[in-house]
Design a binder for these strands. Structure first.
Length: 235
DNA sequence: GCGACAG
DNA sequence: ATCTTGTCGC
């Protein structure tokens, strides 16, 4: 259901080489908007993730749509493809976005916001996966990463909900957020049409029990299961 | 030059 | 990301 907005064509997702990919990011970075998101208007949230087969021989991208109030799954879709871009730190979107967009095409619903497994503005060119997806769809997107990439953050307080700024070159590019007491924090950053306060508030709503936000956990499980089924079918 | 480096 | 057993703890 969601689609790339008019004027962006293929979203610059098929660069000839890493140098061209970085140029695409620099060109599109100016389109990112940071603004408050009215959580009252968010009734459908999509979580995205990708699983890979050993040797990069196959991948499955998954999108799981949930009601943030009940955390009930209302829709989901997958896309089984092959990697067409290597994993290069800083160019993550060129590896995952084509397949994720294909999965989104299979949804029967229109999510109000998206949660990516990775970074947004906390990126060398301030244009991580969450920004790229947000700009292509022109929808609210936030990034939630499990480990650091750029910048540094002090350890947040031990209780759920406490956070510290993620700083890169004196610039606030995200937050280190404790989603659960006693576990390692998650790194939150703005992708598009959301600000850090809204992003953290939404993320905490989506993370009632485990460290990882529920939509991403579900997408991770779905993509992993589908990948296993596919490889089992082949032998 | 060397190490670090989202998934 | 993926390869991998048992094990400590709620």
């Amino acid at each position: 259901m969601p689609r790339i907005i008019d004027g962006l064509d293929d979203g610059g997702l098929w660069p000839a080489d890493p140098g061209a990919a970085a140029t695409v990011q620099e060109r599109l970075a100016g389109r990112v908007r940071t603004e408050p998101l009215d959580l009252g208007g968010v009734s459908l949230v999509a979580g995205l993730d990708v699983s890979y087969a050993p040797g990069d021989t196959a991948l499955v991208a998954a999108a799981v749509v949930m009601d943030p109030a009940t955390l009930e799954v209302v829709d989901s879709a997958v896309a089984a493809t092959e990697p067409r871009f290597p994993y290069v730190p800083g160019l993550f979107a060129f590896r995952e976005l084509p397949s994720l967009l294909k999965a989104l095409e299979g949804l029967g619903t229109e999510p109000d916001a998206y949660v990516c497994d990775g970074f947004g503005l906390a990126h060398p060119r301030r244009f991580g996966l969450a920004c790229h997806l947000g700009v292509l769809l022109d929808r609210p997107v936030l990034g939630a990463a499990k480990s650091a990439f750029v910048g540094r953050a002090e350890a947040p307080g031990p209780e759920r909900g406490s956070w510290t700024p993620l700083l890169d070159g004196g610039e606030v590019v995200g937050r280190s957020l404790r989603t659960r007491a006693g576990v390692k924090p998650v790194f939150v950053s703005v992708g598009h049409r959301v600000d850090l306060d809204s992003a953290c508030e939404l993320l905490l709503r989506l993370t009632p029990r485990y460290r990882i936000p529920e939509p991403i956990r579900r997408a991770d499980r779905l993509s992993r299961d589908r990948l296993a089924e596919a490889s089992a079918a082949k032998g």
